[in-house]
């Protein structure tokens, strides 16, 4: 079909409903979505028409759409310079003020949709999560990040909302943490180098202590912004929750489970509510007969474990001493598909 597929972001401003009415009347474009949430915009959209007056529209999100080859038309209230700045920082292809006529906006959407958009490659996003009960999520995230950092530019970011322990675990001072970069993220859609720390070839963004945890929109923005600068973003996502904002945007999800009966039951409690792409199940701290544990894991979760990691005293000691885990332990996570 030659008519471009256009999505709008549902807005209280009249230009949005006028645009949809004009699009239907002229049939110049197909309106395939009026998104209330970011997840309602599918990858098969050619053009997005979006207002700067929506709380979850951020420079990072706009860039993410542009990177995916979607053309973006931004509309800001007349005279709203901060709103315009969001659209500019998000690299929108066209920026109009809301006094534009709906017919003109439809024509612009049609033209942009027919011109096609190039894609920009971004880094892979891996989220490490798991049930409650300290199954070793942070430890596995660290091993995974170090393991990948030998082959590609890798960053690990602590987005555990309940217990962000990455800085303590790696022996880093608590500040600067990711909260110190939120203003720049919000205004520019970028991660300031000031919050990135380097440890043995791995970049680290530590979580925030004593301040409110980041909300879902901000968590997504952080990960998307990092994925523009790094080949691999490893997220220590903390305990899984049914409304987890990061799992739906991840390229890979690693579900860490303590290889004990209690751990397996907890993991089963997560899997039963799971939606989205199938996670890679990692059985951590295995002791005893591996075959019996494997069978129990299959029975409890319905998943085939991707990795089985035995109890490793080197990992325990490095964690207790707040040191980087020895390189010999990184191999445990190298079995995951790149």
């Amino acid at each position: 079909m030659m008519r471009p597929r256009v999505a709008t972001v549902l807005s209280a401003r009249p230009w949005e409903s006028d645009f949809v009415t004009a699009a239907r009347a002229t049939a110049a474009v197909r309106v395939v979505a009026r998104a209330y949430e970011p997840g309602e915009v599918g990858p098969d959209v050619d053009v997005i028409v979006v207002g700067s007056d929506v709380a979850w529209v951020t420079p990072s999100l706009l860039r993410r759409w542009c990177d995916a080859g979607i053309r973006v038309i931004g509309v800001h209230p007349q005279g709203d310079l901060p709103g315009k700045a969001i659209l500019e920082a998000g690299e929108a292809h066209e920026i109009r003020s809301d006094d534009v006529s709906s017919i003109e906006l439809v024509a612009a959407a049609r033209l942009l949709g027919l011109s096609g958009g190039g894609t920009r490659s971004t880094g892979r996003i891996g989220v490490v999560t798991g049930p409650d009960g300290a199954p070793g999520r942070t430890e596995m995230a660290i091993l995974h990040a170090f393991s990948r950092s030998r082959a590609e530019r890798t960053v690990i970011v602590d987005l555990d909302r309940r217990a962000p322990s990455l800085s303590l675990r790696l022996g880093l001072p608590p500040r600067p943490d990711l909260a110190d970069g939120l203003d720049e993220l919000r205004n520019e859609g970028t991660i300031t180098p000031a919050i990135l720390r380097e440890i043995d070839g791995l970049s680290v963004v530590t979580g925030t202590f004593g301040r409110p945890p980041v909300d879902a929109t901000t968590a997504r923005d952080i990960v998307w912004a990092l994925s523009r600068d790094f080949d691999r973003v490893v997220v220590d996502g903390g305990p899984w929750a049914i409304d987890d904002p990061l799992v739906p945007i991840a390229d890979e999800v690693i579900l860490v489970c303590d290889a004990t009966p209690t751990g397996l039951v907890r993991a089963a409690g997560v899997v039963i509510h799971w939606t989205g792409a199938q996670p890679s199940l990692v059985l951590n701290r295995m002791v005893g007969d591996p075959q019996e544990t494997l069978m129990a894991a299959r029975r409890a979760t319905g998943l085939e474990p991707s990795l089985q990691i035995p109890y490793d005293e080197d990992i325990r000691l490095s964690a207790a001493r707040c040191q980087i885990p020895p390189a010999s332990t990184w191999r445990w996570m190298s079995g995951l598909a790149a």
Partner: peptide
């Protein structure tokens, strides 16, 4: 928060 409330109202109106 105001913007989110406005958008919610727009969705309901729609």
């Amino acid at each position: 928060e105001v913007l989110a409330a406005e958008q919610e109202a727009a969705a309901t109106t729609r």
